[in-house]
């Protein structure tokens, strides 16, 4: 699937975990499709997710013990696998959020800093 639209960004490697954990922390147990829909809604369709990649990622999070998976019934009463965040998932989310914030604020500083103030800081 190569025809990505230039206006939409692919999900950055590593951020998918953060996004999924955040989604589950905010909304409680969700099935895979629900998580995908939620990500698209929040990002207003700007964050282009190759939805299939969600499943290996969910498996990894499950193996790490960050999410729990259970089979249950969906809204329209169909069998679906529901993922929920675990205690260790919450700790992971807190850490990743902190890391991400520090990272993005650092980048932000680079982007807002003018040449002078940059040299001021050096001085």
């Amino acid at each position: 699937m190569k025809n990505e639209q230039p206006a939409k960004a692919g999900v950055l490697q590593g951020t998918l975990t953060l996004v999924v954990l955040r989604t589950l922390a905010a909304l409680g147990p969700l099935h895979g499709y629900g998580i995908a829909r939620r990500i698209e809604q929040i990002s207003e369709d700007l964050l282009q997710l190759n939805q299939g990649t969600l499943y290996p990622a969910l498996l990894r999070m499950e193996q790490e013990g960050w999410v729990d998976a259970k089979w249950g019934a969906s809204d329209n009463n169909r069998k679906a696998k529901f993922y929920s965040i675990t205690a260790s998932g919450r700790r992971r989310l807190a850490r990743e959020t902190k890391d991400w914030r520090r990272m993005s604020s650092t980048i932000e500083r680079f982007l807002t800093a003018g040449p002078r103030s940059f040299s001021d800081e050096l001085a």
């Binding site: 099935h31 895979g32 499709y33 995908a36 939805q51 299939g52 499943y55 089979w71 969906s74 169909r78 069998k79 679906a80 696998k81």
Partner: peptide, 9 residues
């Protein structure tokens, strides 16, 4: 299970 999940999706 994975197949079920994908089909559901």
């Amino acid at each position: 299970e994975l197949e079920d999940e994908v089909r559901f999706h």
